[in-house]
């Protein structure tokens, strides 16, 4: 459902048999409020830590900051009893598989809070070969808490933000509460550990790339990513134009040539050095 507007007609889309004359004037708001209140006041996080942020998460749960003031002190070690997954730390490719499985095992309603820079977008380790640049590449995230690591108070702020988000949800809007739609909800597809991580949702894209490779046509795979062209100190107008069209820079036809020349220069330098060393 695309519309975020509260449209009571959609109540009828669920399996509630609503008499025609009552459609449009049922008191859904107050029910929503009770429903939201009860959801947000007993949000049980999963006892699940990944990296550095997990230590701050435990610190938040401990005496000084005390999650129990928000009804969150019951950290369950099993996903089947938890409502909230605090992704606390760097998500690696090896770990994303269990994480998606855990998420699928959580009963709805379920929420994800990405704690820290790594879980939000890869963080300082983003460039690494085994690091997933943000949990939201695989799972829907409700709240992002920046920081490296976020202090316990920053996390608490994030949790309050999540509570506020829940407060703003409406039972009548299936975008907010998709788990009351018709039929069971789809589990998130579990990534596969092949030569690299494989997202089942990208199978088509991968296949296309593989076909290109089979035909001997250039693909982006196994190639150095485009060298970001170094722009000299040019007048600001030009700079602005370049900034507006970064794709053009990447597609510079001279790119390959420059790259080759640089590599050749590097090889020459190394040969020289080696000769010197000998």
């Amino acid at each position: 459902m695309s519309s975020k507007e509260l449209d009571l007609k959609h109540v009828h889309d669920t399996e509630f048999p609503l008499p025609a004359e009552m459609q449009g004037n049922v008191a859904v708001t107050s029910l929503s409020r009770i429903y939201n209140w009860s959801r947000r006041s007993s949000m049980w996080p999963m006892l699940f830590g990944l990296a550095c942020c997990a230590i701050e998460m435990i610190g938040t749960a401990a005496s000084r900051f005390d999650l129990s003031r928000f009804g969150m002190e019951v950290m369950r070690a099993t996903p089947r009893q938890s409502d909230l997954m605090i992704v606390s730390g760097t998500v690696t490719k090896k770990m994303i598989v269990p994480i998606v499985r855990l998420y699928n095992q959580m009963p709805e309603p379920k929420y994800i809070l990405a704690m820290g820079a790594c879980a939000s977008g890869g963080g300082p380790f983003k460039e690494g070969y085994n690091v997933v640049s943000g949990i939201d590449k695989y799972l829907p995230v409700d709240v992002y808490v920046p920081g490296c690591p976020p202090t316990p108070q920053a996390l608490l702020y994030g949790l309050i933000a999540l509570q506020k988000k829940i407060d703003g949800q409406s039972l009548a809007n299936l975008d907010d509460v998709p788990w009351y739609g018709v039929g069971p909800s789809e589990p998130a597809p579990i990534p596969i550990l092949g030569p690299d991580i494989i997202d089942p949702r990208q199978m088509d894209l991968i296949r296309r790339q593989a076909e290109l490779a089979a035909r001997g046509e250039p693909t982006y795979v196994r190639e150095l990513p485009p060298v970001v062209k170094k722009v000299k100190a040019v007048p600001s107008k030009v700079t602005k134009a370049a900034a507006a069209a970064p794709a053009e820079i990447a597609e510079d036809p001279r790119r390959e040539e420059i790259l080759k020349r640089r590599l050749a220069a590097l090889a020459r330098k190394r040969a020289r050095d080696a000769a010197k060393a000998n």
């Binding site: 990405a114 939000s120 977008g121 943000g134 939201d136 995230v141 409700d142 709240v143 992002y144 808490v145 920046p146 920081g147 976020p150 202090t151 108070q153 920053a154 702020y157 994030g158 933000a161 988000k165």
Partner: peptide
């Protein structure tokens, strides 16, 4: 200011 939590990182981060 550590109170930076957001609902959408693509627009504000």
């Amino acid at each position: 200011d550590y109170e930076l939590a957001s609902y959408d990182r693509t627009t504000v981060h």
